Simulated scan of single mutants.
Amino acid sequence: MTQQRHPVGIPTGGQFAATNHAEPDIALDSVSAARLILPDDSFLGQHARCPETRPAEWVFGQDDSIDAAVGTVMDGPLSRGVVNAQRRSAFHAWHDWAMTRALETRDPAFDDFVMGLRTGATSLYERRMDHYKPSLDRFKHGGTPVYVADHALQISGTKRASLEDREHWRKLLKRTPNEAWHRGHLAAGLVLSGADAYWGMRDTPDAAAIGVATPPSAE
Rank of each mutant, 00 (worst) to 15 (best):
Q3W: 14
H6D: 00
P7I: 06
V8E: 01
G9T: 03
G9H: 05
G9N: 00
I10Y: 02
T12M: 05
G13L: 03
A17E: 07
H21L: 11
A22D: 12
A27M: 13
V31Y: 14
A33S: 15
A33W: 13
R35M: 13
P39I: 14
D41T: 12
F43E: 00
F43W: 04
L44D: 10
L44M: 15
A48G: 05
E52A: 15
T53P: 01
A56R: 09
E57G: 09
F60G: 03
G61F: 06
Q62W: 13
D63C: 06
I66S: 03
A69S: 06
V70W: 00
G71L: 00
G76I: 00
G76V: 01
S79Y: 03
G81K: 06
V82K: 10
N84K: 07
A85I: 01
A85M: 08
Q86V: 13
F91V: 04
W94E: 09
H95V: 04
H95D: 05
D96T: 08
W97Q: 08
W97S: 08
T100R: 14
T105K: 03
T105L: 07
D107K: 12
A109E: 02
A109F: 06
F110V: 04
D111I: 02
D111S: 08
M115H: 09
G116F: 09
L117A: 11
R118N: 12
T119Y: 15
T119S: 15
T122E: 01
L124E: 06
E126S: 07
M129F: 12
H131L: 14
P134C: 10
L136I: 01
D137L: 02
F139K: 06
K140C: 04
G142A: 10
V146P: 08
V148M: 11
A149I: 10
G157C: 04
G157W: 07
G157H: 04
T158L: 09
K159Q: 12
R160M: 10
R166K: 12
R166T: 05
E167P: 05
E167I: 10
W169I: 02
L173Y: 11
K174W: 07
R175S: 11
T176K: 03
P177I: 04
W181K: 03
W181H: 06
H182R: 06
H185K: 15
A187D: 01
A187K: 03
A188G: 12
G189R: 01
V191E: 08
G194P: 05
A195Q: 02
D196G: 13
D196P: 13
W199L: 06
G200V: 07
P205D: 05
A207G: 15
A208E: 05
G211R: 04
V212L: 09
E219H: 15
